[in-house]
Amino acid sequence: MTETTIRTAASNRALLSRLRAWYNADTSNPVKRVQFDRPLTPWVFLLPQLAVIVIFFYWPSVQAVTSSFYIEDPFGFGSTFVGTENYTDAVTSSQYASTAVFTVFFCAMVTALSLGIGLLLAVKADKVIRGASSYKTVLISVYAIAPPVAGLVGMMLFDMHIGPLTDLAAFFGHDLRVGIDYGDTAFALVVISVWKQIPYNFIFFLSGLQSVPTSVREAALIDAQSGLRRFWDVTLPLLAPTAFFLLVINITYAMFDTFPIIDVVVKDKPANNPITLVYKVYLDGFKGNDIGGSSAQSVILMVAVAALTVMQFRFLERRVHYG
């Protein structure tokens, strides 16, 4: 009896001294040792950031995953475990499929157009010498507009009665009916979302262009007569890191950050309007009160985004030159 007590006490003391030694230990890497005298110190600095990530990212994720396996009573009185039923329901529903197709189309269009136009404008702005700063300011200022406001401005432009863009379409013989006609609404959503994102891409592309060394451009000027060739062979590869970064950002934008724009455009419209998967999560969860189904959908989205990101980094980043 006493023997065990002594042994426990001894092992406790040993553990304690090990802990203390660990806390006081010098790190083996001399570079790190210079910066932090104790191994625990960096963790203390990391704590706030970790807390933010855990509270605002991991905790909701775990919640989403958990509730995706339950069907919740619409009045919140209780929930029933249903296994993967929420998932099969979501995936097999034809509405989900059509929304997914639209989301892919929407992301591709918004990303391609806003990257393309942003790059084009940046290339042109880079060549402007006189009045360059006011030109840039005009282009960049759109970025200061909040997405819901962008949505509202867009709605006004596309308004069925007073919208100038509707008039323009009418001039070309098309009856533009945003909010009623599926195709027209999709068109308006893409236009507004692209318009909102161009300045962001423009800023990054412009600074990317301006960081291409002048002498490298001049060397290219001597080596190749065609401006298009030079752009393709020299400027674009040097812009690739910027472009890759923007690609990731733009896909994320098209999937998630366009939510307010879609909300403004399709909200309270009775017709069958195009929406993205993210908006559908919101509709089903908060309008349809189907928390379980909506959680399942958001988990699917999470997995899809994770897969997409991994793919981007695996396949694209390798071909990108970081010089």
Partner: peptide, 13 residues
């Protein structure tokens, strides 16, 4: 003509 620059101006990629 061919030019040699002070900072070489090689194409980094």
């Amino acid at each position: 003509i061919a030019m040699v620059f002070q900072n070489y101006a090689l194409y980094p990629h």
